[in-house]
Amino acid sequence: MKSAFHSPLTVLLAIVLSSCSIQIGVQCEEDDDTLDAIAVSFSDGSRGKVEFVSERGSWKGRVPSTIYVPKGSDKLTFIAIVDDKRRSASGYVTSRIIPEIARKKGFSGFEGKDAIADRYWSYPSTLVIEVPPSPVRD
């Protein structure tokens, strides 16, 4: 009686599955350069929450902290609320083209909105959100 572990089908399945795991590992490494880390804080040092929204989705986090968002050429809007829930701020940040990466990779123009073109754009690494002063309590 043959062992199921040595059948050609089992061997083929093992090869396919191991190559998939190798590809997943490569994909994760490639994804590292598709994210921007943005260190977010409030102008007065308060704590709170922020949500970033772009055409690619939305990302929430605490303030102060570092939030990872996908690179993109579109505006990254934000809505922030201070923990006292009486102060908030909103706005947007714009990305810029990364010339040294674009030259190195041979980027030759704006071929449309896709993940490959968006890799050549970067959001600022820090964002200080201006919040109004804390209201005076009676």
Rank of each mutant, 00 (worst) to 15 (best):
A4C: 11
S7I: 05
T10R: 10
T10P: 01
V11Q: 09
A14W: 13
V16N: 01
L17G: 11
S19T: 14
C20F: 13
C20H: 09
C20Y: 13
S21R: 03
Q23C: 10
I24M: 11
I24P: 00
I24Q: 03
I24G: 02
V26S: 10
V26Y: 11
Q27W: 14
Q27K: 07
E29D: 15
E29K: 13
E29W: 15
D31S: 11
D36G: 03
A37S: 07
I38G: 04
D44G: 08
S46L: 02
R47H: 14
G48M: 05
K49P: 00
V50A: 03
V50P: 00
E51M: 14
F52Y: 05
F52G: 00
V53E: 03
S58D: 09
W59Y: 09
K60D: 01
S65T: 10
T66H: 01
I67T: 01
Y68N: 13
P70F: 14
K71L: 10
K75H: 09
K75S: 12
L76Y: 07
I81V: 14
G91W: 13
G91S: 13
T94M: 09
T94C: 05
R96P: 00
E100Q: 12
A102T: 11
K104S: 15
G109F: 07
E111T: 13
D114T: 03
D118I: 09
R119C: 02
Y120I: 05
Y120K: 00
Y120G: 00
W121D: 01
S122M: 15
Y123I: 01
Y123W: 12
P124I: 05
S125N: 15
I129S: 00
P132D: 04
P135L: 10
D138Q: 12
